[in-house]
Deep mutational scan, measured.
Amino acid sequence: EPEARKIVEKLINNGLSPEDVKRWAEKNNNPEVKKAAEEYQKR
């Protein structure tokens, strides 16, 4: 999901860690963003 990846990169560029992004995604019920954050961590 390229859109989710863009969101993850934007949040990380704004100073969030991938863990923060995953928590944000869970709080906002956004499994695509959570998955993208996990993939981002593996890179």
Results as ranks from 00 to 15, higher is better:
E1W: 14
E1S: 13
E1G: 12
E1D: 13
E1Y: 13
E1L: 13
P2E: 15
P2A: 15
P2G: 14
P2R: 15
E3N: 12
E3F: 02
E3V: 09
E3I: 11
A4V: 06
R5A: 11
R5G: 07
R5P: 06
R5F: 08
K6R: 14
I7H: 03
I7N: 01
I7D: 00
V8A: 06
V8H: 01
V8G: 00
V8P: 00
E9K: 08
E9F: 01
K10E: 14
K10G: 10
K10P: 02
L11K: 01
L11V: 00
I12W: 02
I12H: 04
I12M: 10
N13T: 09
N13E: 14
N13A: 15
N13F: 09
N14Q: 15
N14F: 10
G15H: 05
G15L: 05
L16Q: 05
L16P: 00
L16E: 03
L16F: 13
L16I: 07
S17R: 05
S17N: 07
S17L: 05
P18N: 02
E19K: 05
D20W: 09
D20Y: 05
D20K: 02
V21F: 01
V21I: 15
K22Y: 10
K22R: 09
K22P: 04
K22D: 05
R23E: 13
R23M: 08
R23W: 07
W24S: 03
W24Y: 03
W24G: 04
A25N: 00
A25G: 06
A25F: 02
E26R: 00
E26A: 01
E26V: 04
K27A: 15
N28W: 09
N28H: 13
N29R: 06
N29S: 09
N29D: 10
N30I: 12
N30P: 01
N30L: 15
P31Y: 10
P31S: 09
P31G: 06
V33F: 04
V33L: 09
V33K: 00
V33I: 10
K34E: 07
K35E: 08
K35L: 10
K35R: 12
K35G: 04
K35S: 08
K35V: 08
A36R: 02
A37R: 00
A37I: 13
A37W: 06
A37D: 01
E38K: 02
E39Y: 02
E39P: 00
E39M: 04
E39S: 04
Y40A: 07
Y40H: 07
Y40I: 08
K42M: 09
K42S: 10
K42L: 07
